[in-house]
């Protein structure tokens, strides 16, 4: 579904954020991307969704190159940034309608899906309110609803649990599991190890822009806890 091969990204000014990184996410994978602050997670994710140009390496989504055929790739995926800045001048429902229009979702489908997710997130009472008066968590929920509205095949989430209340976090986890059970894939970054441990079937650990472990979670963890493995790997690498 998502293939990253030998990705290199240097920011203007010389900061090497990602170095020779390769990751493969297959259909049905719930793939966790773990690393300390500033490890290069957001950089990798932005490159994968086609909003950050990179120098070398390749990223393919379902066989389409992100660099060469971005629009086709973007049709297959949905992206939720770590800080979802949405159009303040629009109301919640206007934003959802905007995204649904871009993906040509029929009125009936969008009604059904919006109602389902808005109820799950208890956002159904705020849809007619301008986004400018939404809290961070509400914006995140809205962004997630509009990500799911067009039934993407790949979800790319950047720190999806930051700023969510426990109930919403639980809802998000449920949605994520459901989504992957249907044969779709999720690639998400986090620095909360417990979440990754419980949720993912595969993980990758990144440190200072370089991949230090990647594969099925059981293989990486062995008999230790993920925390022990993470600390061990990141100290020694």
């Amino acid at each position: 579904m998502l293939t990253i091969e030998h990705l290199n990204k240097t920011y203007p000014g010389g900061k090497v954020a990602v170095r020779d990184l390769s990751i493969t996410v297959e259909d049905g994978d719930l793939f966790g991307f773990i690393g300390h602050n500033g490890a290069g997670k957001t950089t990798t994710i932005k490159a994968s969704v086609g909003i950050l140009p990179f120098e070398s390496g390749s990223i393919h989504i379902d066989g389409h190159s992100v660099a060469k055929d971005p629009v086709t790739c973007k049709k297959l995926l949905a992206y939720l940034p770590d800080d979802p800045q949405l159009y303040d001048a629009l109301t919640g429902i206007q934003y959802i309608n905007f995204i649904a229009d871009i993906f040509r979702v029929s009125s009936e489908d969008r009604r059904q899906r919006t109602m389902k997710y808005a109820e799950m997130f208890e956002l159904d009472g705020s849809l007619n309110t301008p986004i400018s008066s939404f809290s961070h968590g509400m914006k995140q929920k809205l962004a997630l609803i509009s990500a799911l509205i067009h039934t993407p095949r790949l979800l790319i989430l950047d720190e999806p649990f930051v700023g969510l209340d426990p109930k919403a976090a639980f809802t998000v986890k449920t949605i994520m599991k459901e989504f992957c059970a249907e044969g779709n894939a999720i690639f998400f970054s986090t620095h909360v190890l417990e979440v990754a441990e419980k949720l993912c079937n595969k993980i990758a650990i990144i440190k200072n822009g370089e991949l230090i472990a990647c594969g099925p979670i059981d293989e990486i963890r062995g008999r230790q806890s993920l925390e022990e493995v993470f600390l061990e790997l990141t100290e020694n690498a």
Partner: peptide
């Protein structure tokens, strides 16, 4: 800043072409 909040619960779903939406 207490901004305007709507109490309306009826939500309008109207589909338009992507260009019109933009």
């Amino acid at each position: 800043v207490a901004r305007y909040r709507s109490g309306r619960r009826d939500v309008i779903f109207k589909s338009r072409s992507p260009r019109r939406a933009l």
